[in-house]
Amino acid sequence: MVDGLIAKSLNEALEALDNKEYQIVAGGTDMLIQNRSHSGMNIDYKKDVLYINLIDELDFIKVDEKNLYIGANTRLETILESKLVPQILRDVVIEMASPGIRHTATLAGNIGNASPAGDSLVVLYLLDCELEIKSLTKTRKVLLKDFITGVRKIALNKNELITKLIIPKINLTDCYFHKVGPRLSDAISKLSFACGYSVENSIIKDLRVAFGAVYVTVVRSREVEGKFIGQSVNDLKANLDDIINAYEPLIKPIDDQRSNRVYRKNVAINLLREFIENIKED
């Protein structure tokens, strides 16, 4: 039978991780389902478990002039209620999880789980989220997009723990998240979409688009965005077909029990089109 260790402080957790390899469990809302056995039986973890949900020092939301910092243990509900958090992130939280899940689940848990259908990742990619990762001896920072390497694959050493999310403050004219689920709440997405832009003097200064569940990881292309930044709003709209053509090859969804590739692709492009068409000059 595998062990379960409850860490109450960061140091305790890091020391444990330094000692041996653990399955890290935060809120547990995904991990318990992924490791289910049967009613009344122990959770069927494949290795020893380190529970980090009770480490209070990782439960915080802070800001400075440059960034917003969200502790790894900050519950989704706290994020939803915080005025410090950008609206788009609060929107994704309310769309992605029911209250029962929001009260225990965390963004860091979502990131650690790296599900291709994880809605929060789409927005975190859009916002250029960075992670602080600690081991007993070292603290490092990594961009979320470099941290997630594939379906349920992350670049985390076995002695490391995600300790905080760092979200740069950016000034967007508008940004939003659109979840396309099989129903209006509490369901895994067929696909999801996040976008944002800023305009100054009718010129596009920033343009960001991210798609979820249309590829093994979130799709966001700095390269494509860069091509259109600097254009006037009118030119951008006139170039709508070019934008669509640029994204088209990046959107490679699959068929599964939730939806099919044709729908996912079609809707991803519709959402992109709708976003571009609705960009406003100042």
Binding site: P182, R183, L184, S185, D186, A187, I188, Q257, R258
Partner: peptide
């Protein structure tokens, strides 16, 4: 309009309440 269930080679594809979608209070 909502509840999709199908089989693939005799295997029901929606094997839990996550995959088989019934209306919530929001729907």
């Amino acid at each position: 309009y909502l509840e999709v269930m199908n089989h693939k080679q005799g295997k029901i594809q929606q094997k839990n309440m996550t995959d088989y979608i019934i209306p919530t209070a929001k729907d």
